[in-house]
């Protein structure tokens, strides 16, 4: 994973709340077996509406998304993160995120920053006043800057550290392999196993 320190890019206002992962990427696009190439699938149904924000040329190449509360709720599909990332988004801001989505994002280098509803509306207003303006995301100082306004955002310390360092979770866990092996040695024999196949 590439480290994330700062990023500056076109700010996109998504003026909706409760954007579930079915909206971010509908299920019909989950059939691919690769991790890339999902950019066309992002908001596929919504993009068929001509007035949807991503169809506005002012936001071409957008990379910082500002959404209403409860972004990324519902299905666990990590494809939602891949689609946002493939489209070019590096950061999403919302007052609240779905738990699984937020976890998935952190593992794929997509920053999810929490700001208040009032702050989201401030950002929406700034973008509307000047469509196509950039936002700067500074993860080192957990600050977001748009139209001269500086807004602190929240992200949990551990995810922030991993994003800054670009660390891979599996590698980190495998440093503790001896502990895992020791834990396994202490598991009760009657705990279920899938193999061998049980009798019917």
């Amino acid at each position: 994973m590439e480290p994330f320190t700062t990023h500056t890019g076109v700010a996109v206002p998504l003026k909706r709340s409760a954007v579930d992962t079915d909206q971010i990427i509908p299920a019909v696009f989950l059939k691919r077996v690769t991790k890339t190439g999902f950019d066309d699938a992002l908001f596929a149904h919504l993009r068929q509406q001509p007035d949807f924000v991503l169809n506005d040329p002012a936001f071409a190449g957008g990379s910082v998304l500002f959404a209403g509360p409860d972004f990324g709720t519902g299905s666990s599909r990590e494809h939602a993160v891949w689609a946002l990332r493939d489209y070019g988004f590096r950061a999403v801001f919302s007052p609240r995120f779905g738990d699984i989505f937020r976890g998935n994002s952190g593992k794929q280098g997509l920053l999810t920053g929490v700001i208040t509803e009032e702050q989201v509306e401030t950002c929406w207003a700034a973008i509307e006043a000047e469509p196509g303006i950039a936002a700067t995301v500074d993860l080192t100082n957990t600050t977001l800057t748009i139209s001269g306004i500086s807004i602190p955002f929240e992200i949990d310390a551990y995810t922030r550290w991993r994003l800054l360092e670009g660390l891979d979770d599996i590698g980190l866990t495998l440093r503790d392999e001896a502990r895992i092996t020791a834990f396994e040695a202490g598991r009760e024999a009657w705990r279920p196993t899938t193999l061998p196949v049980g009798d019917r």
Binding site: S76, G103, I180, E184
Partner: peptide
């Protein structure tokens, strides 16, 4: 890798949905 994994909690298990990166993590490390 499915959010409705919470189903299994009916047995008094701790069961939850995970993303694909976590699926890989569990496959590799349990």
């Amino acid at each position: 890798g499915d959010s409705h994994t919470s189903t299994h909690g009916a047995f008094g298990a701790m069961a939850f949905g995970i993303g694909t990166s976590e699926v890989e993590h569990v496959l590799a490390t349990q």
